[in-house]
Amino acid sequence: MWNQSKTLILLSVLSALLIGISYSVFGGTGGILLGVILAAVTNLGSWYYSDKIALAAYQAQPVTAAQAPDLHRMVAQLAQRADIPMPAVYLVPTPAANAFATGRDPQHAAVAVTEGLLNLLPADELEAVLAHELSHVMNRDTLTQAVAATIAGAIAFLAQMASYSLWFFGGSRDREGNGFGLILTILIAPIAATILQLGISRTREFAADAGAARLTGNPRALANALQRLERSAQKQPMQGNPAFQPLLIFGGSDGNLLTKLFSTHPSTGDRIERLMALEGQTLTMF
């Protein structure tokens, strides 16, 4: 419940930041209205197109039950256990070990795994990774993360527009006393938006880890998988657009406080610690 509340708060602050920067750039009621419209348009775009964009970004290819019977069977069993429709299954042609889920809701979901992941993990750990991704689908995290990313992108776009405004019209704005405030907006808003977006991503990862533990009843399997993924990523990192890194089950996150603040994922150590705290508990889906 806390993870859901925290996500809602972060999304609300992110949307408010978008409206605020629109007001700072354009001023007045028109600026506020433009911010609301931008928030609505970016959310709508995320709703309909985020899955196609993410799958294309990693060159994911659909695989049938005949082509990957074990993978399909595992996904189908987990989907039945989670009481959600069977998602489409995709394979990413890369030796890097990773996985992600996408789609606006359980009825339009897809799960993608890399060839490297299938070669790396034993069956119980692969099941745990798939359960993590299906937990994202159940919680509609894929849509939440896409919305957060597009709002953050819109904020960065507005900040860039503001910088152009200062460049070409800085003198008039300075006379109006708005120059300093606009500079602060340009510098701070994109950073704040990024921190909020990444905070949402980290929160949803913890929730999906716990969901996987409930689905499989085996928190240790996911903990072991995360350890393998971390070692594998050091040798063979996942290549792709950094904008989609929050979708991946493993994004690399250990480091100092500043590094963690700008990380898409919680540290592997923190995730494993939470998972092992669940071991031995009675885990239920609801």
Rank of each mutant, 00 (worst) to 15 (best):
1 M>G: 12
3 N>E: 14
10 L>Y: 13
11 L>S: 12
16 A>Q: 04
16 A>G: 11
19 I>C: 04
19 I>G: 01
20 G>P: 07
22 S>K: 04
23 Y>D: 06
25 V>F: 08
31 G>M: 10
35 G>T: 01
39 A>I: 04
41 V>E: 08
46 S>E: 06
51 D>N: 08
58 Y>F: 15
58 Y>I: 00
63 V>Q: 02
64 T>Q: 01
69 P>Y: 00
75 V>W: 01
83 D>P: 00
95 P>L: 15
95 P>S: 14
99 A>G: 11
105 D>L: 02
108 H>Y: 13
112 A>D: 05
112 A>K: 04
119 N>M: 11
123 A>N: 12
128 A>Y: 05
134 L>Y: 06
134 L>D: 06
137 V>F: 11
139 N>F: 10
143 L>P: 07
146 A>R: 08
148 A>R: 07
148 A>M: 07
149 A>N: 10
150 T>N: 15
165 S>R: 15
165 S>T: 12
178 N>F: 09
178 N>K: 14
178 N>Q: 14
180 F>P: 01
182 L>V: 04
185 T>F: 04
187 L>G: 02
188 I>M: 12
199 G>V: 08
210 A>V: 07
211 G>P: 10
230 E>T: 12
231 R>P: 01
232 S>P: 01
237 P>I: 11
238 M>Y: 10
245 Q>G: 09
247 L>T: 13
248 L>S: 05
250 F>T: 12
253 S>H: 13
257 L>F: 12
257 L>T: 11
258 L>Q: 05
276 M>G: 01
277 A>G: 03
